[in-house]
Design a protein around this nucleic acid. Structure first.
Length: 570
RNA sequence: CGGGGCGUAGCUCAGCUUGGUCAGAGCGCAUGGUUUGGGACCAUGAGGCCGGCGGUUCGAAUCCGCCCGCCCCGACCA
């Protein structure tokens, strides 16, 4: 391919909207262009990378026995209504109306569609197991699209769905996908960390996410420095502390005026104690009842863990009005002492180790000090509720401590069970003649997000450093001389390399050498073959590796060999 | 959705406070010339309803209102 007739508009300066390295470099290198917030066009170079990522995913999915299909972007509202997600998805789902007033979703995911299809055509266990996947565009009207390809409203996803007659089959399908994902990310040169994740209330066990540690990530993961505990922070366990053995028999509860002090910082400063001697009370509305969730003052409540502990489908904070009505006090002064009986009190297990602490008094501008659980208020349920943080002891081993990292979620493995097969009627006959809903798993990879992640993981101040496997072209031949003879030999070399199986871009543009060097570094071709004046004077060209800047000087006929050897080393 | 910021040439931005030689710069682009191993130089030129609509005014890129778009932070932490 000749650069002179190709389309790779590079930019000297990144557009102002780009912040992260991947966003900036993909724009500058002429890989993508933004069309709207969270909506991107893939230019030729970007599409080549995307296709290569897809190809690797496709090969490994096929190898793992999954079979490719293609589902429509448009799916009718009726099938979403069967699972309740036409409502549950809320504004995240983009919807369109056709001319006759029927509503369609622009698919944010495809469980409903694939399960409906399967329900229609599969009726016997003999047709299972099957694992169907597609690589397709998805639409999600995100709260806030950001970071270029990392969180878009329209993006490419590989989504696979396994169907089995029983739980054992699901486990096998899941394991196959697990191994396939390991191979995929290895081939993409993405050093992912596999973490435990929370699948929500219905999710059940064995939800895993493939995370790329990166400052640009939106997720937080925790890694034990001693054992193999690796988890998404949203579902990290905390180690249960030893409860206090000796409890003061005396009640020394005391009301303290705390005018206008609604934050933990204000109260602890005023009382002259540290935040971990306070207990904060958070009021929630969960499936029709009000719940008071208690955590230590210096902790943050993990809402997902609360939801799981309560087994709640719906969970939201109580409004300021509700808090006033329930406690008689404005926001900032809620406490567990004297709460109405109908309010369920769930406390973080860390509080079991506390004694004589301070809480809100359920009265404006007042707190109670010297409070003890059990004595001053009841606890209906103990649970692990708090957010786990950097430096916490590992809940799984004795010696380890957890470190916290930002990460980009690239892949997700999920056991669905019969969540979709039941409402959509995907039922098969078992050998015994019994009818059972099929047991499903789903497995996603953010394909376009992977492209961004590869850049986040591989760049320097000069530009992108593509792994060989996904580079838009593996080799760029820089034809630097205006001399016709040299230019002709550069072209011959490019052709020869193509014939040797390399993907080559010949930079034959009418540009000065500096421009070509800068663009080659920016775009990030793994190898640069420099054909310049040394060809005429010494009969040699230079072969350079973008990643480690290694260079070999060889005769033109030796380039293919040099490339092959250097490629082995990368 | 809340908070903040920003919309002026293809890109990066100045001008706005104090309305009137205010349609500007650099890069990019076109043409000519000189250059040619790490984003060259000179000359000439093209390119903008100053995001949109409305208002104030003799006069608006500039002041006011509404709308649209884009970016960042947050979106329960008492």
């Amino acid at each position: 391919m000749k650069a002179s007739s190709y389309y790779m508009p590079t930019l000297r300066q990144a557009p102002a909207e780009a912040d992260l390295p991947s966003h900036r470099l993909l724009l500058r290198g002429g890989f993508i262009r933004q069309v709207s917030a969270g909506v991107f066009a893939f230019l030729p170079l970007g599409l080549r990378v995307l296709r290569k990522v897809e190809k690797i995913i496709r090969e490994e999915m096929n190898r793992a026995g999954a079979i490719e299909v293609h589902m429509p972007v448009l799916s009718p509202s009726e099938i979403w209504e069967k699972t309740g997600r036409w409502f549950d998805y809320g504004p995240l789902m983009l919807r369109v109306e056709d001319r006759s007033g029927r509503w369609f979703a622009l698919g944010p995911t495809h469980e409903e569609v694939i399960t409906s299809l399967l329900a229609r055509d599969v009726g016997s266990y003999k047709q299972l197991p099957v694992n169907l996947y597609q690589i397709q565009v998805k639409f999600r009207d995100e709260l806030r699209p950001r970071a270029g390809l990392i969180r878009g409203r329209e993006f490419f996803m590989k989504d696979a769905y396994s169907f089995d007659v029983d739980r054992d089959g699901l486990d096998r399908a899941y394991d196959m996908m697990y191994e396939a994902y390991r191979r995929i990310f290895a081939r993409l040169s993405l050093p992912t960390v596999i973490v435990e994740a929370e699948g929500g209330v219905i999710g059940g066990s064995d939800t895993r996410e493939f995370m790329l540690p990166s400052e640009s990530g939106e997720d937080t993961i925790l890694i034990c420095d001693n054992c193999d505990y690796r988890t998404n922070a949203e579902c990290a366990y905390s180690r249960k502390p030893e409860p206090v053995k000796e409890r003061n028999a005396l009640t020394n509860r005391e009301l303290v005026e705390t005018p206008g002090m609604t934050t933990i910082e204000q109260v602890s400063e005023f009382l002259g104690c540290s935040a971990d001697q306070l207990v904060k009370t958070l009021l929630y509305y969960a499936d029709g009842r009000f719940v008071a969730a208690l955590v230590r003052g210096d902790r943050e409540l993990n809402e997902l863990k609360l939801q799981v502990a309560l087994g709640a489908g719906e969970l939201r904070m109580a409004t300021p009005e509700e808090i006033l009505e329930l406690t008689g006090a404005p926001v900032g002064f809620s406490g567990p002492v004297g709460l109405r009986d109908e309010i369920y009190i769930i406390a973080d297990h860390e509080i079991a180790a506390m004694t004589e602490f301070a809480v809100g008094a359920n009265r404006a501008d007042a707190h109670l000090v010297g409070v003890d659980w059990g004595k001053d208020f009841r606890v209906d349920e103990w649970a692990d509720l708090r957010q786990v943080v950097h430096g916490d002891p590992c809940p799984r081993c004795e010696e380890g401590y957890l470190s916290m990292h930002r990460a980009i979620e690239l892949g997700h493995l999920f056991k669905l069970g019969t969540k979709y097969s039941e409402p959509l009627g995907a039922v098969v006959d078992t050998p015994g003649g019994e009818q059972v809903p099929v047991v499903m798993g789903c497995y996603g990879i953010g394909v376009s997000r992977c492209v961004a992640a590869i850049v986040e993981n591989g760049h320097d101040e000069d530009g992108i450093i593509w792994p060989l496997a996904v580079a838009p072209f593996q080799v760029v031949v820089l034809s630097l001389e205006r001399d016709e003879e040299v230019a002709r030999r550069a072209e011959e070399l490019a052709v020869a390399l193509e014939e040797a199986g390399w993907e080559v871009l010949l930079d034959d543009r009418e540009e000065r050498p500096g421009v070509k060097f800068k663009d080659a570094d920016l775009v990030g071709f793994p190898f640069q073959v420099v054909v310049g004046k040394r060809l005429k004077s010494e009969g040699v060209v230079e072969v350079r590796c973008r990643k480690d800047r290694q260079e070999r000087v060889v005769a033109p006929h030796g380039v293919a060999t040099a490339l092959a050897e250097m490629a082995k080393g990368t």
